[in-house]
Amino acid sequence: MPPPGGRHKRALVTLGLLLACVVAAALSVLVGPAGLPPGRLLAAAAGGDDWIARTILFELRLPRAVLALAVGAMLGAAGAALQGYLRNPLAEPSVLGASNAAALGAVVALYFGLAALHPVVLPLCAILATLVALALLFLLAGRSESPLTLILAGIAIGTMAGAGISLALNMAANPFAAMEIMTWLLGSLEDRSITHIWIALPCIAAGLALLLWDGRALDALTLGEDGALALGIDLGRARLRLLLGVAIGVGGAVAVSGAIGFVGLIVPHLVRPLTDRSPSALLVPSAIAGAALLTLADVLVRIIPSTNELKLGVVTAFVGVPVFLVYLMRERRLW
């Protein structure tokens, strides 16, 4: 509900962020270890018979760009929705245990060798684990509408999932098995295929739709639970939609990308000054900014010269921590 002048600004911000997204996506398609000139890629896209360029474009770079956009959008929106819902600027998808549970599901698939059966098995295990974690969260948090109960239950679940991951690493049959799990945990979008897109996109689309539904409930929560209820908000249903959205969306995202931290945390903070700071105004811009940021980070891992390609989760964490600290200093609050 922006005042008349605010609507203009809002459209401008959305447009600017979309533009950043387009630039990031274009870079993501144009940049890669093969060093193909843009002209050759364009010709291949236009239907030329240069099969090397076609293969690289359609089977490697496009899926990677699409996944980076989708995963980034999901993480950004989930962070914004959770910060609004929990009224805590430090909330991100991992506080409810969603990311860790998805990672545990994937690690279980790797540990027992299920992942080798078919590329679909690992993501499906991750999504399944997130849903189990969500059910546990509801059992633990009960009917309480206090954000603190939810955070504590989420931390318990996340820690338990983390312990499960450590156990898998601990018990890994040989260093290579442990290495495989570690590599996945670092988070990456390398060598993802169309299959991964088919797995992740429906989950992410459903997750985003559920999260964008409740902008008004999030705004009302600015006044606390009583304030929101007295404004006619059905908090029980809003919470159900929000948690389902996070579980399905983040589960689907983490299932294909591995654990990528800090995007969900920092994107809402980067976007907030551009909006009227109400939680609802933050949702869409956070999704778009998350998409742009993760895609850019994914370009960065390809152009930073290193012997092993840097993992995406490593880069986002290195970019994330300084931003986080600057925010903390500026706000001068201790949460």
Partner: peptide
Amino acid sequence: YLPQGQTLHWPLAVERLVALGRL
């Protein structure tokens, strides 16, 4: 309803805050 000791969880502009009443 105006609850006791109303806390504001986000730094909204006054006009935006008043507009919440229309929800």
